[in-house]
Amino acid sequence: MINYIAKRSFYLIIVMIGVSILTFGLSQLIPGDPAELILRQMGMEATTEEVEILRDRLGLNDPLVVQYSKWVRNVLRGDLGRSFRTGGDVAEEILYQLPATIELTFGGLVIMIFLALPIGILSAIFKNKWIDHTSRIFAFFGASMPSFWLGLMLIYLFSVRLSIFPVMGRGTLRHLFLPSVTLGMGMAATYARLIRASMLEVLGEDFILAARSRGLRENIIIINNALKNALIPVVTAFGMSFGHLLGGTVIVENIFAWPGVGKFLVESIFSRDYPVIQGYVLWTALTFVVVNLIVDISYRLLDPRISTEGKM
């Protein structure tokens, strides 16, 4: 196990080196001269000379390799540069907005679990009955619904018409509810089907038959024996869909004016605040990779049948 973790961590470092090269490469896509852009953002009508001085100071005249190694050295010290727009430290700005995004992600996950778990289990138990058919339709709707549309429709129904929930902003649990539903709904649809499929597989196994023949109550079998085993493959799928969750927060935060990192990112895109975009991309990639590492490790801890030898 320790061997496996070490191997995976080493692999993570390699991937992160690649990620850093690609993220750095993003800055090469910027149309025009960044130095000129900075001066213009500061409200200065820049002369060629001033631009040249700034280019020199920012190190933009150095060869790319030198620029990259400087950038990496700064990133490793936690310095992601300064925001063009606010002038603040990018890492600090992201950290400042992070709690709101984590709160939203957590809310979305809770909604997802509350919807997917019962729907998945019930449609496995009542396979091909109306519950199962309804859940299949729910899955298709959930997978095809644009989350930004769902969010706006929820606002219209529950905030504008029924005045049950606040339209936007962050604060109480009531503020959190609609954004969480918007974020969790699409994932819940997919996961309900995943849990169903996994439950059906486990319910057909010998140990379930053995438990039944021992005369255990059906609901005890389902919760104690079946669900525990059925959730293992679902855990791995979660690693992959964590990326969707991160992308989802960007859209949901923008609909509900939720003051998190995702909203900050879109604002930065429109004010061409490149250091923030770069910092955000690097940060999400790191989170995504680390979450997947944790998922893979816990998958192996949960299921002792999987060999850790020779597998990456």
Binding site: V15, V19, L246, G247, G248, V266, Y280, T284
Partner: peptide
Amino acid sequence: ILLAFPGLILALA
């Protein structure tokens, strides 16, 4: 390396 980025976010960036 490309798969290490959440798709929507890389596309957005």
